[in-house]
């Protein structure tokens, strides 16, 4: 069984990251804390079998993603719907009416705007979970498509396809909220 010292190092280095991941996936602080706890419990039990085949963060994300998927199955919610490209196709007239989203110079500053941040949170939470996982892992946690694929059991092409649909979905939701170019802090 892995020593507490190894676990403590891993926990100290990665708990914040896993919490951030959990918050983006679950949308609620308490659910994110539960995810962190369950992930690290599973990691603790599996640590002596970990041989470094993947980077530590990737290994932890894989455990966390399985926890998410298992929780969802237990809830017996309706299956996640598939997103089609067609539902995001811009129409000539529609696209010309929509404002570009927060086209100001500084995205960090733009995200200080509560309206935009809430809209982005809402859009991500509205994504069907298997698209949300890909978007969060790839665009928000910064993993490569290959790493995301190994976590989700998908090939790179499938990861990129889901990512594209997830991005289109979020973009459409933000546009529909009418988030404007000069969003003030």
């Amino acid at each position: 069984m892995a020593g507490e010292h190894d676990f403590d190092t891993i926990y100290r280095e990665h708990a914040d990251r896993l919490f951030a991941f959990g918050l983006k996936i679950c949308g609620h602080v308490e659910d994110a804390k539960d995810l962190v706890q369950e992930t690290f419990f599973n990691a603790y039990r599996g640590l002596d079998r970990f041989r470094g085949e993947a980077k530590m963060p990737t290994w932890l994300y894989a455990i966390a993603a399985r926890v998410c998927i298992r929780k969802r199955r237990k809830k017996k919610d309706a299956p996640d719907r598939e997103l089609s490209l067609e539902e995001f196709l811009p129409t000539d007239e529609g696209e010309l009416r929509l404002q570009p989203i927060a086209a100001g110079p500084d995205p960090e500053q733009a995200l200080q705007n509560k309206e935009l941040k809430d809209a982005l949170d809402g859009a991500i939470q509205a994504l069907p979970r298997h698209y949300r996982l890909v978007l969060v892992l790839r665009d928000m946690e910064g993993l490569s498509a290959r790493e995301v694929g190994s976590i989700m059991g998908l090939n790179e092409r499938a990861v990129k396809s889901r990512l594209h649909r997830a991005r289109l979905f979020v973009r459409q939701r933000l546009s529909q909220k009418g988030i404007h170019a000069s969003a003030d802090a």
Binding site: F19, A20, L23
Partner: peptide
């Protein structure tokens, strides 16, 4: 707008885990 959406996702910062909660989770795991 598509590019901007991707940039916003990449720059998004989640609320941090409080030190108290971090300690409590560690204790619960152990």
């Amino acid at each position: 707008s598509f590019k901007r959406t991707v940039v916003l996702c990449r720059k998004y910062q989640a609320k941090p885990l409080s030190p108290t909660a971090k300690g409590a989770i560690r204790a619960a795991v152990l």
